[in-house]
Amino acid sequence: MLVEVKGIEAGYGKKTVIRDINITVNDNEIVAIIGPNGTGKSTLLKALYGNIKPTAGEFHYRGRNITGRSPGVNCANGISYVSQGANVFPDLTVEQNLLMGGYTVKDKNRVKEKLKQVYELFPALADRKSSRGRSLSGAERQQLAFGMSLVCDPKLIFSDEPSIGLAPTVVKTIMRIIKYVVEEMGTSVLIVEQNAKEVLRIADRVYVMKVGKITNEGSAEKFNTPEELKKVYLVEE
């Protein structure tokens, strides 16, 4: 087991947003967390990655308890994070952005190798090496954000709502890219996603989150039916 999350509870200030979260992720797996808007899915990723500190629970990665470890250390130790909105550095070029992705990598030759790999994975980026981040399209930015997250050689990638703000065809492309990344690079991806239909195409296992708690889980096939999807989005109170 790559990841074991037990009883995580977190929030902002006095407000607890998520509680009693239990999740596992295996090697080479795509795990999706789906659910309606505002249920705390992004909060969960932030709590795991260390942007906010969990108030209870544990996060085990490769057998080690790394609960609340800071983002920087996580990035240097095999976990990376693609934020919501696929934020890249607008003033830097594609190549420079990728170099920043390798900030924590000590061996600069390794960084060069990873950059080559990323360009092979994303030929669109290879064409735009010297373009500034701000001139990229939404799809290109998403690819760049993923590319940046790959330079530090992660075994686990957190992806926060990759489909946000993208046109439907582009969303399909992004999902295919994520699947491709997992297959080619051997990483696992934990995706938080509102667009259940699209993410179920690539996910292996699924957790459903509602009002800050996990309410259901299972294989992707189990949820890929209209009835199940409807249940996901209807808030049962």
Binding site: F89, L92, M100, Y103, T104, G133, C152
Partner: peptide
């Protein structure tokens, strides 16, 4: 440009 992404990248 983006202090959050900068922090996330370590």
């Amino acid at each position: 440009n983006d202090s959050e992404v900068a922090e996330n990248l370590g």
